[in-house]
Write a protein that binds this DNA or RNA. Structure first.
Length: 607
DNA sequence: TTAGGGTTAG
């Protein structure tokens, strides 16, 4: 027999239920929530719009526990579909739906990445006579942000303006992010500047939008303006801004932010510490990164991954594998990005068997399907280890269609191994997919040159010029006394140019006495050997390094950054100079970090 | 009374 409620109790049920359900949702009280659901049905309170909406929200935030727990991608998807179905069931049973009901479901779908379902619901909502409001619009914008669909994002913007939501801060922050993701930070700034009042989250939206899209200078400018407006920096301000320092490789700026973090007592925030570890790695100071990492009580997956990647790029690569194995023993499970880091370590260390082992364990032990990037990483491991044929077969037999970037890892390996026959075949494949691939044209031309096939190299260069293709100019930079100095080859514009060349000549004489012979392999022009060594003398990384040495006190570590890979001769020269001046020289190129000390390099001459 | 915005790794 079902208990019936006294009339007085029944009337008070709807008033108190929404708040009670909200508390259950917030505190994760599933059992109590289930009882309240039963109560709502028995008492008739479910007919109340507020009660039903609160229940719907409960089902979205706290789906019934009987569904499989979301562990890996595949299972999580099943779980989300089941959760949506259960929420939808509650929704369909509602007699009195309003905009809140629709929005609750829409938000649930967008947050779970079920974008098609969300857009379908919004169409259904229109058909039901319920017009989208600011909640709906701010939920739609992240969908077009992720798809970088600026056209549809702009349609939402237009709708918002026409319907009186142009001043809404939630719609505003959605628009700022959407435009930033579509690489239109200029529009983000316009939206931001036109919003009334000031809102701390909007400032952080602006900052994050610029930071995530490579607009480093703009991000710093936003930060200056924010502080000037009296908005205090928040934890999220630091976790957005610190990666900017890493991308600029600006160690002095990164250290300043680190100091603010420590003084503000924010060094326990996992977002901030992960970004600090990554920043120090990217700025060439891996030992400080490791120092921070070693003091973490319980590193999360991002902290582990950035530290593993740090060792993969700086060496010792085996330390990256030691960390990975340590992580596997704990509670934190590796994800697809962690595997990219560990495969990078295998590539730089030349560990073919381990590379295969980790690659296979992704699907065997973790249910992670290897992506194009993982395939490219394994192809790189094989190619760099000289197993060109194995790499070729591996790429040819991939389950997913290889892209030009996968093939290009093999092309670079062919150049290093001086196998121009295979290089031509691989380049043919690349040009079928990407006829104007600049990097691959240059690599093939360099492969011809370093094998002495000057005519083919010249013909290829000529056809590149004809097609209007220009090689990215090499440049290197160094920070001295908080100022960045940028050099291109034979750059005479620097005020210290004469002094740099003078010092370089002195070093050349010392190196010659110690047995140095210029390595002209990377001079891709058919000129006399003597001229080639002159070309080598002016390479941007040498200019930046020598400037660093003569403008800093003895013993100071020199950190040079280069946009392309370091050339073979510069690598040899830097080894000699590190010994002559007794300094550690760190050089970041497009592929990894080189730590030169006492005449040796951490890459073991394998890069 | 019920729904929404900003952060770390490739």
């Amino acid at each position: 027999m079902r208990a019936s409620f006294p009339a007085a109790a029944r009337s008070s049920v709807p008033a108190s239920l929404p708040a009670a359900l909200k508390s259950c949702t917030a505190l994760g009280l599933r059992a109590l929530a289930a009882s309240l659901h039963a109560l709502a049905l028995r008492s008739g309170a479910f007919a109340d719009r507020f009660v039903a909406n609160a229940l719907l929200n409960l089902y979205c935030k706290l789906p019934p526990a009987s569904y499989p727990s979301p562990v890996m991608h595949g299972t999580a998807r099943v779980s989300q579909v089941a959760a949506l179905e259960s929420a939808r069931k509650v929704f369909d049973e509602m007699a009195d739906k309003d905009t809140v009901s629709w929005n609750t479901l829409v938000v649930f779908c967008t947050e779970k990445g079920q974008h098609q379902e969300a857009l379908g619901l919004i169409r259904e909502m229109w058909g039901d006579g319920c017009k989208p409001d600011s909640f709906t619009l701010s939920s739609m914008l992240p969908i077009f942000a992720e798809r970088a669909d600026v056209r549809r994002g702009m349609e939402v913007h237009g709708f918002a303006t026409r319907n009186g939501f142009g001043d809404d801060v939630f719609v505003g922050s959605g628009l700022i992010n959407m435009y930033a993701n579509c690489t239109r930070t200029d529009y983000s700034v316009k939206v931001f500047d036109n919003l009334p009042g000031r809102d701390a989250i909007l400032w952080n939206s602006m900052l994050a939008g610029c930071a995530q899209n490579g607009s480093a200078e703009e991000a710093l400018e936003i930060c200056r303006r924010m502080l000037h407006s009296g908005i205090r920096p928040m934890p999220v301000t630091f976790s957005s801004l610190i990666p900017v320092c890493g991308n600029l490789a600006s160690l002095h700026l990164g250290k300043q932010l680190h100091a603010y973090v420590v003084f503000g007592g924010l060094d326990g925030n996992v977002f901030i510490t992960s970004s600090l570890i990554d920043m120090y790695c990217k700025c060439g100071d891996v030992s400080t990164a490791r120092h921070i990492f070693d003091r973490l009580q319980s590193p999360d997956i991002v902290s582990w991954t950035v530290m593993i990647m740090g060792h993969a790029l700086h060496g010792p690569e085996r330390e990256a594998l030691v960390l990975f194995d340590r992580m596997e023993l704990g509670d934190v499970k590796p994800n697809d990005i962690t595997f990219l880091a560990v495969l990078t370590a295998c590539s730089h260390a030349g560990l073919v068997d381990k590379g295969w082992k980790y690659f296979n364990s992704m699907s065997d032990h973790y249910g992670i399907v290897p992506s194009l990037e993982h395939h490219a990483a394994l192809a790189d491991i094989l190619g760099r280890a000289g197993k060109l044929e194995e790499a070729y077969n591996f790429i040819s037999n991939m389950q997913i269609k290889p892209t030009a970037s996968v093939w290009s890892t093999l092309l670079r390996a062919c150049k290093v191994q001086k196998n121009t026959v295979l290089a031509e075949e691989v380049a043919r494949r690349i040009f079928e997919l990407e006829p104007r691939s600049m990097g691959s044209h240059v690599t093939l031309s360099n492969a011809y040159s370093s094998s002495g096939r000057w005519n083919e190299a010249a013909t290829l260069r000529k056809s590149m010029r004809k097609k209007g293709m220009k090689k990215e100019p090499a440049c290197s930079w160094i920070e001295v006394k908080n100022k960045r100095h940028v050099f291109v080859a034979h750059d005479k514009s620097h005020p210290w140019y004469e002094r740099i060349v003078g010092a370089l000549n002195v070093f050349s004489e010392q190196m010659a006495r110690q047995g140095y012979v210029p390595n002209t392999e990377d001079v891709f022009q058919d000129i006399e050997e003597e001229q080639k060594s002159h070309v080598l003398c002016g390479h941007s990384e040498k200019l930046a390094m020598v400037f660093g040495i003569i403008s800093t006190p003895p013993g100071t570590t020199i950190r040079v950054m280069k946009n392309l890979r370091v050339c073979v001769d510069c690598h040899t020269v830097t080894k000699f100079i590190s010994k002559i001046v007794g300094r550690e020289i760190v050089m970041r190129d497009a592929n990894r970090f080189h730590h030169f000390k006492d005449g040796n390099c951490s890459c073991g001459d394998f890069w």
